[in-house]
Simulated assay, not measured.
Amino acid sequence: MNFTDYLQLFENILQDAEPKAPYSNPDYFNYTKLNWSRQQRWLKTGVIVEDIAAAVKNITTPQQWVIITEPWCGDAAHIVPFLHKIAALNPLITIDIQLRDTPPFLIEQYLTNGTRSIPKLIIRDRDGNDMAVWGPRPAECQVLYNRLKAEKADFERTKIELQQWYNEDKGKSLQAELLEVLAAVQKVTPA
Rank of each mutant, 00 (worst) to 15 (best):
K120S: 09
A53W: 04
I107F: 15
Q142F: 00
H78N: 14
Q64P: 02
A53H: 03
P138E: 05
W42Q: 10
L99C: 06
L92K: 08
K149C: 01
N146S: 06
Y31H: 11
E50K: 07
F82S: 02
Q64A: 08
Y31V: 01
K120C: 06
Y145K: 09
F105A: 06
A150N: 14
I93S: 04
N25S: 12
R124I: 03
L92Y: 07
K149N: 12
T102A: 15
G128Q: 02
G74V: 00
D130T: 10
T112P: 07
P71T: 00
G46H: 05
I79D: 15
V66K: 10
S117H: 05
V133L: 12
A55L: 11
L89R: 02
Y28C: 10
P22F: 06
A77F: 02
A132D: 12
Q98P: 02
V47H: 09
W134Y: 03
F29T: 02
K152F: 02
D75G: 01
L89K: 03
V47C: 11
L83S: 00
A139S: 13
D96E: 15
I107P: 14
Q63L: 15
V80R: 05
T61C: 08
I107M: 15
L34C: 12
L148R: 00
Y28I: 03
D130V: 14
D127V: 01
D75T: 00
W36K: 12
R100T: 00
D51W: 03
E140V: 11
Q40D: 11
K57R: 07
I68M: 13
Y28V: 02
A21Q: 08
D96M: 05
H84D: 10
Y23P: 14
L121P: 09
P136V: 01
Q109P: 01
R100W: 03
G46W: 05
V143M: 15
E140T: 10
R38C: 05
N113C: 09
F82T: 01
F82D: 08
E70G: 08
I68K: 04
K33R: 14
R100E: 09
G46K: 03
N113H: 10
P119N: 07
L34F: 13
P26D: 13
P22K: 02
A53E: 14
A77Q: 06
Y23A: 12
V133H: 13
R137C: 01
G46S: 07
Y28M: 13
R100F: 06
G128I: 00
L144C: 08
Q98G: 04
Q98W: 05
T45D: 15
T115R: 11
D96P: 03
T102E: 15
K120P: 07
E108T: 05
V80Y: 03
L99P: 07
R100V: 01
K152A: 15
P119M: 10
D101H: 04
D75W: 00
L106R: 02
L99Y: 09
R38S: 10
N25C: 12
V80A: 04
P103S: 08
V133A: 04
R124P: 05
Q98C: 10
R41S: 13
D51T: 08
I48V: 15
Y110A: 03
Y110W: 07
V80Q: 06
N129S: 06
I93Y: 05
P119C: 10
P138F: 00
A21L: 12
V133K: 11
Y145W: 03
S37V: 04
N90A: 08
A88E: 13
I67K: 06
V133Y: 10
F29V: 01
D127S: 12
Y110N: 03
T69H: 11
P81H: 04
